[in-house]
């Protein structure tokens, strides 16, 4: 198996929490993993991206080649478009529809979503709303992971285990919230693929 994933968002949105759960799931499966993160200046509200690669074979490069990503998983709609050159011809784009507007020239949100809608394979999800419905908007990243999970070559239960391990120290209520968020995201994607 091989999953090459571009994780995208804005500094401060916490895309690394998604990477942490995926990384934990991969580690438990004894898979190879490489994950290139953005640290430093861009974390101050700039565009951030993480290249996450999981495979049952050794992985050479920390960076994904253009046109080969299996999935773009973005927690912000305009950011999902920034990395389209990485998407393979058969790849999926999964994005949160809630814009993060911290620049004066942010494009019209309808136009952004229209660009997403032009893609052959995508899931556009209001993860903030779904997270609120399951209990807390702060779980929206796990909704996003759930929505992307059908396109990642890992068993869903392994992602659940990953959440349990990553959020364990924050207490049972937080674990349950994030599990509910993950499942709600998955359920949305299955209905809207």
């Amino acid at each position: 198996m091989k999953s090459d994933i571009i994780l995208a968002g804005v500094g401060g949105q916490g895309i690394l929490s998604i990477a942490a759960v995926l990384g934990m799931a991969a580690l438990k499966e004894n898979l190879h993993l490489k994950q290139a993160e953005t640290h430093g200046m861009s974390q101050r509200g700039g565009a951030v991206v993480s290249h996450l690669r999981i495979s049952d074979q050794p992985i050479a490069s920390d960076l994904i080649q253009l046109g080969t990503a299996d999935l773009i998983l973005s927690v912000e709609p305009m950011e999902s478009l920034r990395y389209l050159p990485f998407l393979s011809a058969k790849g999926y784009l999964v994005t949160n529809t809630n814009p993060f507007i911290n620049i004066p020239n942010y494009p019209d949100v309808e136009q952004v979503l229209a660009e997403v809608g032009k893609l052959p394979r995508f899931v556009a999800i209001d993860a903030d709303q779904i997270a609120k419905e399951v209990g807390n908007v702060r779980a929206s990243n796990m909704v996003m992971l759930g929505a992307a999970s059908p396109f990642i070559d890992l068993e869903f239960s392994k992602l659940e285990d990953g959440i349990r391990t990553i959020f364990e120290r924050k207490g049972e209520a937080i674990v349950e919230l994030n599990l509910a968020a993950l499942r709600a995201g998955r359920s949305f994607a299955e209905k809207n693929m």
Binding site: V10, G11, G12, M41, S42, Q43, R44, G45, G46, A47, Q65, L66, G67, T68, A69, M78, E79, L81, R82, L84, P85, F86, L87, S88, A89, G91, N102, I103, N105, Y106, P107, D108, Q111, V112, E115, L119
Partner: peptide, 20 residues
């Protein structure tokens, strides 16, 4: 040969870092 995926749509704006 490098296969480049879909080009970045022209509406995508730069998002430089900013003060919090």
């Amino acid at each position: 040969e490098v296969y480049e995926g879909i080009p970045v749509p022209s509406i995508v704006a730069n998002r430089p870092p900013a003060l919090c």
